[in-house]
């Protein structure tokens, strides 16, 4: 990585194919910039993200993980919100065991047109991660 990239935290985003991924694509279309060290992995539903994947990301060196959740828009039903919340809680427990700051995992519902909200969330998460990393 070059010097310029070190100004950004490494963030892994879990997005969802039908809901949050279109918003992230549209952020690009609208040239709403966010740090280039933000990488997106797409899954069908945020209720299907395994805590093991999140923990693995920290183990490999990601500063933060952001779940761009389906929220109430989930095409698979209303239980997605609760189940995604449970995944975050389960992961937080595992993070505490490993003495990781639980705030390094962030979740927000990102609808298919929420490009600006996504970029705002990511910028603020990046600021938090840089602040805590450099503290």
């Amino acid at each position: 990585m070059n010097g310029a990239l070190k100004k950004s935290a490494k963030i892994l985003v879990f997005s969802t194919e039908k809901i949050s991924d279109p918003a992230i694509d549209m952020a690009g279309l609208l040239k709403l910039h966010y740090p280039p060290t933000v990488y997106t992995l797409t899954v069908p539903c945020s209720g299907g993200i395994k805590p093991a994947w999140i923990m693995y990301a920290y183990e490999k060196g990601f500063d933060g993980v952001f779940i761009a959740a389906d929220g109430s828009d989930c095409i698979f039903g209303e239980s997605c919100t609760e189940k995604t919340g449970n995944i975050v809680s389960m992961t937080h427990e595992q993070m505490k065991e490993k003495e990781l700051d639980p705030a390094r995992l962030r979740m927000a519902a990102i609808c298919s047109v929420c490009s600006e909200a996504f970029v705002k969330q990511i910028r603020s998460f990046n600021d938090y991660l840089l602040k805590t990393r450099n503290a």
């Binding site: 992230i24 694509d25 952020a27 690009g28 279309l29 040239k31 910039h33 966010y34 280039p36 997106t40």
Partner: peptide
């Protein structure tokens, strides 16, 4: 959408 356009500033 997730590289060239999103990071056209970098």
């Amino acid at each position: 959408e997730q590289a060239s356009w999103a990071h056209s500033d970098d």
